[in-house]
Every structure is written in C-alpha cells, then in structure tokens.
C-alpha cells in the first residue's frame, strides 16, 4: 500500500505539471479580490482627507488647497480601510502589486487634481 502511494507520487512528479510556475515567463494570475495596491480616481476625490486620517499606517497625505493626494507605497499595508471609509468611492484596490523599486524616491505616488475644478465648484456654490 505504501509502495502504491509513493509510486503514484513519483509518477506525478515525473510526468505531471510542476507545482510551481516559471515566474518571469508565466506571470501569476490574481483573483478579482486580491488586494494589490491602492488607486485613486482623482476626478472623484474631494480631498476631504478622511483616508489619510483613518489610515492605520499613516501612508496617505491629502492637501485640500493644493488638490494633492499622496500615498507612500512602502508604508501602505493595503488593509483596504481607506477604500471602505471613502465617502465618494474614489479609492479602489488594484489587483496587481506595487512593482519592486530600487530607488527609494519612487515610493511616493502623488496625484494632483485639475486646476479648473475649484472655479466650477465656487460657481455652483454661489449659484
């Protein structure tokens, strides 16, 4: 009986598909749910700064006057909390991970909103 088991395992190992993937050639398939990295749809963002205040790792910085949204990719723990607290659904979790970096200066991703928008908003508020 024991011989059968080991025989089967040997046959599987010899003629079966390997359990590992040839990484650089075959890229890993991620699931739709996979939490890779946080992305911001800057056109929806109103720079309220809630994501920055609720971030357990303190990775997000938001500045309303400058219309700036900034994330430190190496600090971010991709816990998804900012996505869940965002009132305007601007944040989302991308399936793919942050690409590895050799240079620390690349760890910060900064997004700026369009300059025209404040004018529009003001017009609406006045009207």
């Amino acid at each position: 009986m024991g011989f059968n088991v080991i025989g089967k395992t040997i046959m599987k190992s010899l003629f079966g598909k390997p359990a590992t993937a040839m990484y650089p050639i075959v890229k890993n398939e991620f699931y739709p749910n996979t939490r890779g990295r946080i992305e911001n749809d800057i056109t929806l963002c109103n720079y309220c700064g809630l994501c920055g205040r609720r971030c357990p790792a303190g990775a997000i910085e938001v500045s309303k006057p400058e219309k700036k949204w900034e994330i430190d990719r190496t600090r971010c723990i991709v816990c998804n909390f900012c996505v869940q607290v965002c009132a305007r659904n601007a944040l989302s979790t991308e399936r793919h991970y942050t690409t590895p970096m050799t240079d620390k200066s690349k760890r910060i991703t900064t997004l700026y909103g369009e300059k025209e928008e404040p004018v529009k908003e003001k017009v609406q508020e006045n009207a």
Partner: peptide, 25 residues
C-alpha cells in the same frame, strides 16, 4: 516540500475570498 505544496491550495482559497494570502484584513 509536499506539505507546503498542499498548503498553497489553502492560501489560494484565502486570496480568492479575502484578497490576501497571509494578512486578510
């Protein structure tokens, strides 16, 4: 190696359902 190969299937279930392999949040 065989134990960890089998374990990988469980980790795949985790990634599919929660989004993380180790830390599920």
């Amino acid at each position: 190696m065989h134990c960890w190969r089998v374990r990988e299937k469980v980790l795949d279930i985790f990634e599919e359902t929660t989004g993380g392999r180790v830390i599920f949040s």
